[in-house]
């Protein structure tokens, strides 16, 4: 047979072979994608950002390796405090390895915590610009984690980290509406718990966030009761205190002092717990019935007026207004 004929036959066979496998491969690709085993196609923007060589390596099936190298580069940018470069590099990294929890969490940590702290303390900028840069970094960190959560809905840790950020005393002043922020934090924690793999403290954190959402006290109380019934490992001072406060919200005529003694053991311990809660103003926990309970316990324990928690100097206000005043 002539060579040209052979080549022609080979081409026909190649096309027939290709046609036979086309649908199978498409189906298999779909199955692998559905199973989370297949990364989404590399964005053209990402290809441009990582350059020709890395792009070729990434397209050659080594996306995670390129992400590993970029992570090292991002760390160098972090040590040099080049925050825009850190952000840009992590944007590329998560395009390459969108299923890696570490990159989402580290990227948001650099933005919301490291960059934000840098702007908090960097005196080279005028206060107004520092404040805006601080807020912007935190918002970027939030947005980054939210994208991570959308890409990895079954990852308990990313959801939990989003919850931590939104309920962090030093961060939530960056968000405009506290009620919306605590609701979003509670939602993030709930999603983390619903994965079934979250560690025990995430469920408690869910409750702590929900307890601070105005209008959802009944829902929070139900969770608190469930946590309380779950075992003594959940009987943290914050949980017991919030359980008491939410019960007082549900039943305003409740004897808060008696219930506090029931929860904490003795009038002294109850007074100590209520006082601590009263002082935690920065965390914006609800305080239904706390004042009444303290007054009642002060009478029971005969606490002199000068030692009363009500007469303590209020804790210094600590928020962006004070942080960026100079």
């Amino acid at each position: 047979m002539k060579f040209a004929w052979k080549i022609a036959l080979l081409v026909v066979a190649l096309l027939a072979f290709g046609a036979a496998r086309l649908r199978f491969e498409a189906k298999l690709g779909g199955e692998l994608r559905d199973a989370g085993l297949f990364p989404p196609p590399l964005e053209i923007g990402t290809r441009e950002k990582i350059g020709q060589t890395s792009s070729a390596v990434a397209l050659g099936g080594l996306r995670t390796l390129v992400a590993t190298f970029l992570n090292l580069r991002a760390f160098t940018f972090f040590t040099e405090q080049r925050w825009d470069d850190v952000e840009g590099t992590f944007e590329t990294i998560v395009d390459l390895a969108p299923r890696t929890r570490y990159y989402w969490e580290t990227g948001s940590w650099h933005m919301a915590y490291n960059a934000a702290s840098y702007y908090l303390n960097d005196s080279k900028l005028p206060p107004l610009r520092r404040r805006e840069a601080w807020r912007s970094s935190i918002l970027k960190g939030r947005s980054f984690l939210e994208r991570g959560a959308r890409n990895n809905p079954d990852d308990w840790s990313i959801h939990a980290n989003l919850g931590f950020l939104l309920s962090d005393t030093n961060k939530f002043p960056a968000f405009r509406d506290p009620n919306e922020t605590f609701a979003a934090a509670a939602d993030a924690y709930r999603k983390s718990v619903e994965t079934g793999r979250a560690l025990g403290y995430v469920r408690r954190a869910w409750f702590y966030a929900l307890a601070r959402v105005e209008g959802r006290e009944a829902e929070a109380l139900e969770i608190a009761r469930g946590l309380y019934a779950d075992g003594t490992h959940n009987h943290t001072p914050t949980l017991l205190m919030l359980l008491l406060v939410l019960e007082a919200h549900e039943n305003p005529s409740m004897d808060v002092a008696q219930r506090a003694i029931g929860l904490f053991g003795t009038p002294e311990k109850a007074y100590e717990a209520l006082s601590s809660h009263w002082r935690r103003t920065r965390e914006r926990f609800p305080v239904f019935g706390v004042a009444a309970g303290l007054e009642s316990l002060e009478k029971t324990l005969a606490i002199p007026a000068e030692q009363s928690v009500f007469n303590e100097p209020p804790p210094p206000p600590m928020g962006p207004d004070e942080w960026f005043s100079k």
Partner: peptide
């Protein structure tokens, strides 16, 4: 039709 699909083997990344 002509080229093999090598992307399928990128399960390694996952």
């Amino acid at each position: 039709l002509v080229l093999p699909d090598f992307q399928l083997f990128n399960v390694i990344d996952a």
